[in-house]
């Protein structure tokens, strides 16, 4: 298991906390949404950083109250073809203003990372076989887009066509 961003491997100190494990002092822990809901005060008081993990079936309403205090959200693709996290990414970034790290986990392949970046993901939990070479090519595959990015860095084709128009 490794964590990468768009440029390749990055250092990572997050640890997953089992639902029945005691809250540690300090450290960066990833918990389930159920654990977060039942233990939020203790978690935010004790841990240095708190992250939460869920899959595409999440009810985002349940997460919103914690957003300002969360430093990491892990959204899991249950299969490579699970598209739900792509909507969740945009919602978290565009509608709910989440500014922390948004991490994808699950059996996605390097070729999907560029779209995940476009919908607001920042880091990626990958297994050993994940090719960094392929990742580097994949994130550079497209330079022009018809759609806005959830974290707008580049103008869309539509904006480029009408520079005076805002």
């Amino acid at each position: 298991m490794a964590v990468v961003d768009r440029n390749g491997p990055i250092a990572d100190s997050w640890k997953r906390l089992a639902d029945d494990a005691p809250v540690p002092q300090g450290g960066s822990v990833i918990v389930s949404l159920a654990r977060l809901k039942s233990d939020d005060n203790a978690l935010f008081a004790a841990a240095k950083n708190v992250g939460v993990e869920f899959a595409g079936d999440v009810n985002l309403e349940e997460v919103l109250a914690y957003l300002p205090r969360l430093s990491l959200i892990v959204a899991r693709l249950t299969t490579m073809r699970d598209g739900r996290p792509f909507s969740i990414g945009r919602l978290l970034r565009e509608r709910h203003g989440y500014k922390g790290d948004l991490r994808a986990a699950g059996p996605f392949i390097p070729d999907q990372v560029l779209f995940l970046l476009r919908v607001g993901f920042t880091t990626f939990e990958v297994d050993e076989g994940f090719s960094i070479d392929a990742l580097k090519r994949a994130v550079a595959a497209f330079t022009a887009w018809y759609q806005r990015s959830a974290t707008p860095a580049t103008p869309t084709v539509i904006e480029l066509r009408h520079p005076g128009n805002k």
Binding site: R81, G83, F86, Q112, L114, F115, L116, W145, Y146, Q147
Partner: peptide, 14 residues
Amino acid sequence: RQWSTFHPEFAWLP
């Protein structure tokens, strides 16, 4: 056509 081409959110629908 343009909007739906490589729409990052909707490439992996059910």
